[in-house]
């Protein structure tokens, strides 16, 4: 989640219960905050002048709750460049030095948590994994397309999570195993890539079909299903059937048109299209068996 959320919450609190602290105290606090802010801005200016290079960011701004941000616009930020700086680093610098209301999600900063997927220079990318030096300037940063924007760069992920849960991403064997469940090396290799998903939503956002058809499961969810369908530790026939039935609905695997958009944007290099195609073939085989 965004680091900004607690701040907005405290703001709301002060507005809600003005009797909590005295008027003067609040004015002093405001003043101190403004002073601090002016100082950080001054510091940024100095750093910008001292830096050998600076990077020009164009960042999407929108907030339905703030009057002059209801109309979407782009804000420009100039950030001093340091070697190895990522897009996320630049965003954090801009937020800390220029505009504390700039909102975006980030957490681990090492491509594990999957919270900072954004649309950078016309493509879904994980900001913490994207080197600024590889981006053409100005670096355009927008929220993920085809998802509702909550504020600035934050999008509503609820639909994505719904689709992920729709494929029942958990082992569901009835019998409790009596001993350790071992997986063969080959099987591990088979599902290895599919287990790397970090739920960032880049694939779903890049998918043309998911954009038009809201019910489509989407690449991430199908990949999740692949991970469980192919796992040998869940080997009951009925369960495999059950998983296939979810996948071969009208809005399941058949909607994939092999555009490879998801495979291209996946920050974890999961061969999503390949997995979807494999499941299509599994479904066909399964249906032919019945005839």
């Amino acid at each position: 989640m965004s680091t900004q959320v607690p701040e907005t919450e405290t703001e709301a609190e002060t507005e809600a219960e003005p009797a909590g602290e005295s008027h003067q105290e609040r004015r002093m606090a405001d003043k101190a905050a403004r002073r601090e802010y002016r100082e950080s801005e001054k510091k940024a200016e100095a750093e910008l002048r001292a830096a050998e290079e600076s990077v020009h960011l164009k960042v999407f701004r929108y907030d339905p709750e703030v009057e002059d941000k209801q109309e979407p616009r782009f804000d420009d930020f100039y950030v001093p460049y340091t070697k190895g700086m990522t897009v996320l680093d630049a965003l954090m610098y801009a937020r800390d030095h220029y505009d504390s209301s700039l909102t975006f999600r980030h957490s681990c900063r090492q491509a594990v948590c999957g919270s900072d997927a954004m649309f950078v220079n016309g493509r879904q990318r994980l900001c913490c994994k994207t080197q600024l030096s590889e981006m053409a300037e100005p670096v355009r940063i927008e929220p993920l397309p085809h998802q509702d924007v909550v504020k600035d760069l934050v999008v509503d992920m609820e639909h994505f999570y719904d689709q992920m849960h729709a494929v029942e991403p958990y082992f569901q064997s009835e019998d409790v195993p009596t001993e350790e469940q071992r997986q063969s090396r080959e099987n591990r290799e088979k599902i290895k890539m599919s287990t790397r998903c970090i739920w960032c939503g880049a694939c779903m956002s890049s998918c043309n079909i998911a954009a038009g058809d809201n019910e489509y499961l989407g690449p991430a969810a199908i990949n999740k299903a692949y991970r469980f369908y192919m796992d040998e530790r869940e080997d009951e026939e009925e369960l495999k059937e059950h998983r296939l039935r979810i996948l071969e609905q009208e809005h399941g695997v058949w909607r994939c048109q092999t555009q490879f958009s998801c495979t291209e944007v996946c920050p974890k290099d999961i061969p999503l299209t390949e997995h979807i195609q494999e499941l299509k073939r599994e479904a066909v085989k399964n249906n032919l068996k019945f005839w």
């Binding site: 016309g122 493509r123 085809h146 998802q147 998911a210 058809d213 958009s261």
Partner: peptide, 20 residues
């Protein structure tokens, strides 16, 4: 998403040439 918030030009700008 079909009912997603319309980002107007911002959403569409230059999107087509980014197609893979």
């Amino acid at each position: 998403m079909s009912q997603s918030y319309n980002r107007g030009l911002v959403e569409d700008f230059g999107r087509w040439k980014e197609f893979s």
